[in-house]
């Protein structure tokens, strides 16, 4: 036991000294478990996140927007892949990780269980959802686990255009015809609160958070990040003439931040538990793609084996 205790102290000392933890280093089981859970959830979010936006690729209203959206959704696939890679360094196979998603055991960001109803939703997702995600991701570039941090650096570099393209879509709509402006405002109304929920429960109700902060997996609390996001986004909405759907939103001179209304956590937990508007559709789509891809993956393996055998024989 003293050994493990020593190892834990050494481990924490490394973290306190801002040294990255690498795959072969000793780490507490709980640290590994937390990472596997968090990284795979993050990966699943990227991959499931392709669906609500992907279904607008064929309907994008200009060829320029279509190319941007294709590139963006493809990036999400890439980011999912970087993250699955990072989680594989912890000794869990991608297959196992994906099985957990497909069976509904693993979670992904609840935001993707909301439907994309109009073109403006593509703008709102880029601006708000990617905007919220990137705050988290910038923080994670300094996370203590090396492969995760490196994946995040790559992701942040690539994501920088995602939020801007979304904001641009909204700006163009807001300055367009009255119908377009209405479409943009409606999208903001629907995506605002779910975006705030993306930062997770309030700090007081977030039991794992403290340990994650000590291990420097997380480096800023949910509430801190949420507040920064609100402060920035409210200003951005003003610039393009849209209004944030929160009657209690008010600048607080003393705090130097916006005060905002209460978040409906019942809705949040309800969606987490599987009762969001699109939970079933999202999982069904992933399961369908996986099942229909089985023969494709098998064919590639069979062919590779045949070729290897022939090479050996030659």
């Amino acid at each position: 036991m003293t050994d493990v205790k020593n190892l834990e102290e050494l481990f924490q000392a490394k973290i306190d000294a801002e040294q990255k933890i690498e795959p072969k280093d000793w780490m507490p089981d709980e640290y590994r478990k937390t990472l596997v859970r968090q990284i795979s959830q993050h990966a699943h979010s990227e991959v499931v996140g392709m669906l609500p936006e992907g279904n607008w690729i064929t309907r994008a209203p200009s060829l320029k927007r279509k190319a941007i959206l294709l590139a963006k959704v493809q990036d999400e696939a890439g980011h999912g892949l970087y993250l699955y890679s990072a989680s594989e360094t912890l000794g869990t196979s991608r297959e196992k990780t994906i099985d957990d998603l497909l069976s509904g055991k693993a979670k992904y960001s609840s935001i993707f269980n909301y439907p994309t109803l109009t073109w403006a939703d593509i703008g709102a997702i880029g601006w708000l959802v990617d905007g919220a995600a990137i705050m988290n991701q910038v923080m994670l570039c300094r996370t203590s686990y090396g492969p995760y941090a490196r994946a995040m650096v790559r992701i942040c570099k690539e994501e920088s255009f995602h939020q801007r393209q979304g904001y641009e879509i909204m700006a163009v709509l807001a300055q367009g015809t009255p119908e377009q402006k209405e479409m943009a405002q409606d999208a903001l109304n629907r995506w605002w609160w779910p975006s705030l929920m993306m930062f997770g429960p309030n700090d007081a109700d977030s039991p794992h958070s403290q340990q994650s902060m000590t291990w420097k997996i997380k480096r800023q609390s949910n509430d801190e990040l949420r507040q920064i996001f609100i402060d920035r986004t409210v200003q951005q909405a003003e610039v393009i003439g849209l209004s944030v759907p929160d009657p209690l939103l008010k600048w607080n001179e003393e705090r130097g931040h916006y005060d905002f209304g209460p978040i409906d956590w019942d809705e949040f937990w309800n969606v987490v538990k599987g009762n969001g508007p699109c939970n079933k559709e999202r999982l069904d789509a992933r399961n369908k793609a996986h099942a229909e891809g089985q023969w494709v993956r098998d064919a590639a393996v069979a062919h590779a084996a045949k070729r290897a055998k022939r090479k050996e024989a030659a």
Binding site: L81, R297, V301
Partner: peptide, 28 residues
């Protein structure tokens, strides 16, 4: 039956080292 895991090294410019960038799955 799963595609095996591969490590990927990219040389970004002629003259530089190949650098590890991550991994992926592929049949061959």
């Amino acid at each position: 039956n799963n595609w095996p895991l591969w490590e990927v090294f990219i040389q970004s410019k002629r003259g530089l080292d190949h650098k590890h960038v991550g991994s992926l799955h592929a049949a061959d």
